[in-house]
Design a protein around this nucleic acid. Structure first.
Lengths: 259, 259
DNA sequence: TGCTGTGAATTATTTCACAGCA
DNA sequence: TGCTGTGAAATAATTCACAGCA
């Protein structure tokens, strides 16, 4: 998962919804939208939970934080619930978004259909490469970084997506924040530091893969009960210098794309 | 963030490491690698925590699950810790990975430098589009989906990345699993169903944005204390049919890319 | 009768705070 | 003295299990 917030203890504000619940609402919303398209009028917590990939007790508890939107003995009204969750998530309004860094990843994001469909609108694509400026990606002209502040201001953008190489991410972030952006979705493999009040969420391929590798290794270990160590390293203190097999010429997690 | 596991209660196996800790290890590893490159010999929990964006108590507690790798009064030996965490994550071995769906996103992933650098190797790129087959992306020839099973078997692949449109994701997933893949990183906006023992992690742009929107809305609400409702919907039971402003012609979260 | 809504119990995670070693 | 390692306390999230309404 992605993350890196800046919040008061999750359940703080008046009708405070737990962070874990907020993270699941989009899941429910997607499942509900699919049902809505098939004109299904109502769902039980059991059915909806299955569609969203969670268990029904959790789903009911989650919904209980929003209010009592179900009908006992029947289930939930699909359309009504779609509306309620959308509203709770702030999707009944339109969020202009800028994407900075239009490499393969940035282009993929710009082309992302789900973007436009639910409350979000790509207001601008921005890249530091002058040769990219003016080119059209996903029907939108790429603009040069120079105009970043102006673009943010003109479009009232409060959400920014960073898809630049790691090296430029913090700098881009600083400019976005200075220009008024208060929520950032970061695809660059770096920890961004932001002032209080700015939310950052992180999406990081290499972290996800490493978590998978951890579990994969466990599985292998379970098949063959006895652990077989490959190359025991030197002791911790003293001259503990055993490098990993090959640290590799590349440092770590280079940029996702040449922006 | 991403998720969707299949695990015994996190802290189960003998030296069971909490899931939350596992998810942070890659973060520490990245910070440590950066220090290692700068030839920094040791770090304190405080410094490393700052670099990784967590607080030091949490970091120390995390490390305590791995063992006592620090030195009181001094800190942690960078190289040694890099090795220990790499080993714990299973990165001292090489993980061949296949990417299925070579659109913009798949291409971005294939080009992702951090991929190759730390334990992962792109063994193959696979796409259903026959016109893509044979083309070279990131120095690797794209192969047609027909050969998927063979490719998995030949390369001993256990980790698969799905970057196809939502519509094909489950089908691709089924084939990967049948061919022996036991860990899947899913970029398609769908809930995948997999048999017991297969891990799925999800990366979903639209979910991340929706979570940001939620918090963004809260911020706006705090500035202007009084909540101003836009379009109150009909009541839940009875004829509750108020559709969201404009459900839009597109359903929800279409494919990320035309694979 | 069937399914929601929710207190209570359980489990997981974070944070505190300090003993103890280098 | 300085910083780790870790019990214990606090907080958060999940699950249970059942009362209660349609």
């Amino acid at each position: 998962m992605a993350t890196g917030r800046n919040h008061r203890p999750a359940t703080s504000r008046s009708r405070g919804i737990p962070e874990a619940t907020v993270a699941r609402l989009p899941l429910y919303l997607r499942a509900l939208t699919a049902l809505s398209e098939r004109s299904v009028p109502t769902v039980s917590s059991e059915e909806l939970a299955a569609a969203a990939g969670v268990n029904s007790a959790k789903l009911r508890k989650d919904f209980s934080y929003l209010g009592s939107y179900g009908t006992r003995g029947v289930g939930y009204d699909v359309e009504y619930l779609v509306y309620q969750i959308s509203r709770e998530l702030g999707l009944t309004q339109d969020w202009p978004v800028v994407i900075v860094g239009i490499g393969n990843l940035g282009a993929a994001l710009a082309n992302y259909g789900g973007f436009a469909s639910r409350g979000f609108r790509v207001a601008a694509l921005i890249d530091a490469d002058p040769t990219l400026a003016g080119r059209t990606v996903a029907g939108i002209q790429v603009q040069h970084t120079d105009g970043l502040e102006q673009i943010i201001a003109d479009n009232g953008v409060s959400i920014g997506v960073i898809a630049t190489p790691a090296g430029s991410a913090q700098q881009v972030c600083d400019r976005l924040v200075a220009a008024g952006v208060t929520s950032i979705l970061n695809f660059a493999p770096t920890v961004l530091s932001v002032p209080e009040g700015v939310d950052v969420r992180k999406v990081d391929l290499s972290i996800e893969l490493q978590i998978l590798a951890f579990h994969e290794q466990r599985k292998a270990g379970e098949e063959a009960p006895e652990e077989e160590e490959t190359a025991p390293p030197a002791a911790p203190p003293a001259a503990a210098v055993t490098k990993r097999s090959e640290p590799g010429p590349d440092g770590d997690v280079p940029a996702v794309m040449p922006a």
